Simulated assay, not measured.
Amino acid sequence: MASTQQLIDEAAKIYKVLSNSTRIKILYYLRHQEHEIDVKSMVNDLQLAQPIISKQLGILYRYQLVCRHKEGTRVFYSLDDPHVVEMIDDMLNHVKHEIKGEPHPQNLYTRIR
């Protein structure tokens, strides 16, 4: 079993991967697809260059945030772990409070202490 430090180190690597807005944009795009989607469709829908999307998808795949399969020359992608997008949602909610200058809702941990 991995030590706590190993888990923290791996989490830090994933946070670094998620520090890129293009990668977050791709994850959100995939989240709202009903099925796997090919790179060409992503290029058209996200209006980003194919090499940019392919590079970012490669990084997301390496960290098991997306999965892929190939059919001929086309590569199809989908989310590998929707929980990651939920984590991003939580961060965006945090940012919304910060931008508006609103207090954060009390969480269970705060109420227990």
Rank of each mutant, 00 (worst) to 15 (best):
I37Y: 00
S19R: 08
K40Y: 13
E98A: 14
S54P: 00
Q56D: 15
Q50L: 12
K55P: 00
I53H: 07
I37R: 05
K25E: 10
S54Q: 14
H104E: 09
D38V: 05
S3R: 06
P103H: 11
L30E: 07
L60I: 11
Y29S: 02
R111T: 08
L79K: 02
L27G: 00
H32F: 13
E10L: 03
V17R: 00
Y61M: 10
V85T: 11
Q33E: 12
L79R: 06
L108R: 04
V75K: 07
Y61A: 14
S78V: 02
E102I: 01
A49R: 11
I53F: 06
L30W: 00
Q50A: 13
V43S: 00
V85F: 01
N44M: 10
R68H: 12
H94C: 07
L18I: 07
L79Q: 03
R111P: 06
T110P: 01
I52F: 08
D38P: 00
P51C: 06
V66L: 08
S21A: 10
S54C: 04
S19C: 11
Y29H: 15
H32G: 02
A49D: 11
K13A: 02
R23F: 02
M87N: 05
Y109D: 08
L79W: 02
T73H: 13
V95F: 08
R68M: 13
K13M: 11
G72Q: 06
R23C: 00
D38G: 09
G101P: 13
P51N: 04
Q5M: 12
S54I: 03
I26N: 03
M1N: 09
H94P: 03
V95I: 14
R31V: 00
T22L: 13
R74S: 12
V85Y: 01
H69T: 02
I59T: 13
M87Y: 12
M42F: 11
Q106L: 14
I14K: 12
L57M: 09
I52G: 00
L27C: 01
Y109I: 12
E71V: 14
A11H: 12
E71W: 04
E10Y: 15
L30C: 03
K13P: 03
M91K: 03
L65T: 00
E102W: 10
D38Q: 08
P51I: 07
V75A: 09
L65P: 08
K70Y: 02
K100D: 12
Y109H: 02
L18Q: 04
